[in-house]
Simulated scan of single mutants.
Amino acid sequence: MLLTGARGCGKSSLVKAVLNEFSADGLRLIEVDKHDLVDLPDIVDLVDGRPEKFIIFCDDLSFEAGETAYKALKSVLDGSVAAPPANVLIYATSNRRHLMPEYMAENLEVQRVGDEIHPGEAVEEKVSLSERFGLWISFYPFSQDDYLAVFAHWARQFGVTETVIAGSEREALNWALSRGSRSGRVAWQFARDLAGRQPEASA
């Protein structure tokens, strides 16, 4: 499964929530850094046949030009010669939908034959990686109302009163504007900052 979209909107948190929900049923998570993807086939072999179910998690995944670690990921996603283990799923999060950079020059390789468009090999190679994930889930930037609702939720969790929450909405919007993003992460950061500025309740 590939979770893509705007930063700070809960892609990684969703994966961790799945682990928290189903860990008692035998779900386990193995987090693999991008630079360790070359070891992915060995990791899959080690957990194959175990009674637990495994999520192999690659957080904030993307590749730059010249990197070759993505080839190991492609091999595991397709199962190579052997079928992929039934107890293993690959989850990845990324801010980039196609995981690899695309350049204008590569689009010059696209050919038009009659009414058909034939992408160049470089474009095909880059798009094919994300296509190997069976499920895509996209995350989009928050609307203003969604952002304020998330801020209010976290502020309540931190013990901020409803009066202070209602009076801090404009400040919450300015906080998001200064960071260039209306997201769950930014809402949480402002709620935490606001809570820290509140006077402690008297005993």
Results as ranks from 00 to 15, higher is better:
residue 16 K to T: 08
residue 193 D to I: 02
residue 4 T to E: 10
residue 74 K to Q: 14
residue 4 T to S: 14
residue 172 A to P: 01
residue 22 F to S: 04
residue 190 F to C: 10
residue 203 A to Y: 04
residue 31 E to N: 05
residue 149 A to E: 03
residue 32 V to F: 03
residue 63 F to V: 06
residue 146 D to Y: 00
residue 158 F to M: 08
residue 80 S to I: 09
residue 181 S to N: 08
residue 30 I to K: 03
residue 99 L to P: 02
residue 29 L to W: 01
residue 85 P to M: 01
residue 200 E to V: 00
residue 153 H to R: 15
residue 33 D to M: 08
residue 182 R to Y: 05
residue 4 T to V: 14
residue 118 H to D: 12
residue 138 S to W: 10
residue 66 G to W: 08
residue 178 S to F: 05
residue 111 Q to H: 10
residue 72 A to Y: 12
residue 192 R to Y: 04
residue 178 S to E: 14
residue 98 H to R: 06
residue 105 A to E: 14
residue 180 G to C: 01
residue 45 D to G: 08
residue 79 G to R: 06
residue 75 S to P: 03
residue 156 R to H: 12
residue 18 V to W: 03
residue 177 L to Q: 13
residue 107 N to M: 11
residue 62 S to K: 11
residue 14 L to T: 09
residue 72 A to H: 05
residue 68 T to W: 14
residue 183 S to K: 07
residue 72 A to R: 00
residue 84 P to G: 04
residue 134 G to W: 04
residue 150 V to R: 12
residue 159 G to W: 00
residue 31 E to L: 00
residue 151 F to R: 06
residue 76 V to K: 12
residue 14 L to K: 02
residue 150 V to A: 08
residue 27 L to G: 00
residue 27 L to V: 10
residue 100 M to A: 05
residue 201 A to C: 10
residue 157 Q to D: 07
residue 7 R to Y: 04
residue 69 A to V: 04
residue 79 G to I: 09
residue 95 N to I: 09
residue 30 I to C: 05
residue 68 T to A: 14
residue 122 A to I: 11
residue 148 L to D: 09
residue 182 R to Q: 09
residue 42 D to A: 15
residue 175 W to E: 11
residue 26 G to C: 08
residue 20 N to F: 08
residue 81 V to P: 06
residue 5 G to E: 01
residue 201 A to K: 01
residue 170 R to L: 15
residue 47 V to I: 07
residue 109 E to P: 01
residue 125 E to F: 09
residue 137 I to N: 04
residue 97 R to W: 07
residue 82 A to E: 11
residue 4 T to I: 09
residue 21 E to F: 01
residue 167 G to N: 12
residue 200 E to F: 00
residue 91 Y to D: 05
residue 69 A to S: 06
residue 133 F to Q: 06
residue 104 M to R: 15
residue 133 F to Y: 08
residue 126 K to V: 13
residue 2 L to M: 02
residue 128 S to W: 10
residue 10 G to Y: 00
residue 166 A to E: 02
residue 33 D to Y: 05
residue 38 V to C: 01
residue 142 F to Q: 12
residue 155 A to F: 00
residue 136 W to Y: 15
residue 122 A to S: 05
residue 12 S to I: 11
residue 122 A to W: 09
residue 85 P to H: 08
residue 25 D to M: 13
residue 186 V to H: 05
